[in-house]
């Protein structure tokens, strides 16, 4: 297969996934609303004290983003699995790992990216200092794709199961921990006026690692699920 054919084939997949997302507006909005909702539960849980909220703000943004991302992941391959489109994807001459990455990219564009863009609003509501806002956007920008990549492995493994949802969270949440620690660490550092570029570089390194290896694992997990 030529490079041109490859790019056009993957482009075709990306366009179709984005089109489907925009046709089902609910799927597009739900993770975002969920993100806001979870974040607004924390002040109700711990009380409205500005001092407490300022301390937990960075963590709340990240934990909410992580949960929203994970919940949205269940649908990443599910409808394609159920209606047979996944079989067509697997039997196309395009390499399965690249197909998987393209689908993850489409998914990130409609979940991770919007979450990243609205996260500063939550941060302001929690009273985080302005210095923390760039760190929030930057860490989410590097971190949410990693969440999607790692989560897609779990989504691939559980797509053939009738009750995939809760199992998916059991499988993926432990794997999210490094991303969470680096993300909140950077926000903490930025909020206290310390440099946070090291955190960001570590996140970048993790993302590079994820982009290299996760596609193989996603492809393998899809193959297993479709076969079973």
């Amino acid at each position: 297969m030529t490079l041109r054919g490859l790019v056009r084939g993957l482009g075709c997949i990306l366009r179709r996934d984005l089109r489907l997302a925009f046709r089902n507006r609910g799927d597009l909005m739900n993770p975002l609303v969920f993100f806001f909702l979870v974040a607004s539960l924390f002040p109700l849980g711990v009380g409205p004290s500005p001092d407490v909220l300022r301390i937990i703000g960075g963590g709340v943004v990240w934990v909410s983003a992580l949960l929203a991302n994970m919940l949205a992941l269940d649908s990443l391959f599910r409808s394609d699995y159920e209606d047979g489109a996944l079989e067509q994807l697997m039997l196309s001459p395009l390499p399965l790992s690249l197909v998987a990455v393209t689908k993850v990219l489409a998914h990130w564009l409609v979940t991770g990216l919007p979450i990243t863009l609205v996260a500063p609003v939550i941060a302001i509501m929690f009273g985080l200092p302005a210095e923390a806002l760039p760190a929030i956007v930057a860490t989410l920008l590097l971190g949410t794709p990693m969440l999607s990549l790692v989560g897609a492995i779990g989504a691939g493994l559980t797509v053939g199961l009738r009750k995939g949802g809760i199992l998916l969270s059991l499988l993926t949440l432990p794997l999210y921990i490094p991303v969470l620690i680096l993300g909140t660490g950077a926000i903490d550092a930025a909020a206290n006026g310390f440099p946070w570029s090291a955190h960001l570089m570590w996140q970048g390194a993790l993302l590079a690692l994820g982009i290299t290896f996760a596609p193989l694992a996603i492809g393998a997990s899809l193959r297993v699920s479709v076969s079973g």
Binding site: R16, R19, R23, N24, D83, G84, A85, E87
Partner: peptide
């Protein structure tokens, strides 16, 4: 296959 992979919203 049995399931034709046709998306209802398209």
């Amino acid at each position: 296959g049995h399931h034709p992979g046709v998306k209802p919203t398209m």
